[in-house]
Simulated scan of single mutants.
Amino acid sequence: MDFDLTPEQAMLVETARKVGEQYGLDYWREIDAKKSYPHELWQAVCVSGIAGVAIPQEFGGSGLGMVEMALAIEALSAAGGGSTLGQLFMVNPIFGGITLSRFGSDAVKKALLPGLVDGSVTFCMALTEPDAGTNSLAVRTFATRDGSGWRLNGRKIWITSVPQATKMLVVARTKRLEEAQRKTHGISLFCIDVEREGLTHSPIEKLGTNTLPSSTVYFDNVRVEADEIIGPEDQGWSCLLETLNTERIVTTAGLVGTATLSIKLATEYAKTRKVFGEAPIGSYQSLQFPLAEAYMQAECARLMNHKAAQLCDLGRPYGSEANIAKWLAGQAAAHATDRAIQTLGGMGYSKEYHVERLWRDARLFRVAPVSEEMILNFVAQHDLGMPRSY
């Protein structure tokens, strides 16, 4: 076990830190207030080469792996963006990059991956449905055969960054659940244009992550061409699991960065703030202990996430590690952001001091992309060998 970064990894982290600081806390406060997408930051991420860190070199990427992606996201998030940075990587290098590079045809890879690397192509993924939230096997959106292609009908909800995406990864059934050999059979993945006849979307008002809009998406007889399927027809479930497990890794990295940043903001404030006498409030154990606990939680989440990422890069099973890391990171970020607000007192509730945004944004990730309860179910069943509970 070697916990030291390679020179290449250290350089990547430093590059990510510099990009993150260029678009730091004030930038994020401004675009959060405007509910505007971080176009400038994402373009800087692409120019620096970070967006393509795990994309094969033949398509313009660096040919590295999930370990390097996690390291870059941690640094970017800790520099100001918080957990929203993880979401940016989720919709682009994961939904687009990982899915297409591992399961797309050669033609699709050549057509789309270079654009993902340079930022000219952006992605979103349409998975969640109103009646099939956590239960992805119960999706009802259906692709009916139509000549060489399909016709897509259905509805999705809580889909991130649809207005900014050029391409959408759609999870749909190509075989009715009652006709399938098993529940995991009959699911297919498609990569289609967002601007397409019959595809419409409407915004969802929400608590946080204001810079990345969420939408309800409607498919009304949307045409899907034969070359837009990703992976084999009816057998997309295993491909989807790979996408979702790597999604856990980038989510965790963003949450670890959020915890790191929140603790930094709280400790810096506590070292100088004085209320009773000459001693700063940072000398009070009632403030020290919760921040120390949050730091320890975040470090454990970081290590487990790096283990998951390394196993992924080695081609070994990593689902449990990715889920455990995500659970730990959600807890750590929740604790760190809440105690940062408590440390700052009234100023913690002010937008001027940034931690309220970090708290609002991080709260989502105890529910998504997989809830804490479902992670506990997974660990109990798959790691402890207990009966399925749902």
Rank of each mutant, 00 (worst) to 15 (best):
R17P: 12
K18Q: 13
Q22H: 10
Y23E: 05
G24C: 11
W42P: 04
S48I: 06
I50L: 14
I50F: 01
A51K: 09
G52I: 13
V53N: 11
P56F: 10
P56S: 14
Q57N: 12
F59T: 09
G61V: 14
G65T: 11
M66Y: 04
E68G: 10
A75Y: 01
A79R: 06
A79Y: 06
G82M: 05
T84R: 01
M90D: 00
F95Y: 10
G96T: 01
F103L: 03
F103A: 01
G104H: 01
D106C: 04
K109N: 05
K110E: 12
P114N: 10
G115T: 04
L116N: 09
V117W: 06
S120H: 15
T128M: 10
A138E: 11
F142Q: 13
R145V: 10
W150K: 11
A172G: 00
A180F: 09
K183N: 11
L189D: 01
D193F: 06
G198I: 03
K206E: 06
L207Q: 15
P213F: 00
D227W: 03
G231T: 03
P232F: 03
E233S: 15
E233L: 15
Q235E: 15
L241T: 08
E242T: 04
L244I: 08
L244W: 02
N245V: 03
E247Q: 06
V250D: 02
G257E: 05
A259W: 00
L261P: 11
S262L: 03
K264H: 14
T267S: 07
Y269C: 09
K271T: 07
T272W: 07
T272D: 14
V275W: 05
I281A: 04
Q285N: 12
Q288M: 14
P290S: 05
A301W: 07
A301T: 09
N305Y: 07
K307R: 15
K307L: 13
Q310P: 07
L311A: 09
D313I: 06
Y318D: 11
E321M: 09
Q331A: 07
A333I: 04
H335V: 02
D338T: 08
G346Q: 12
Y353S: 13
H354G: 06
S371L: 08
S371G: 12
F378Q: 11
Q381G: 11
S389K: 15
Y390M: 10
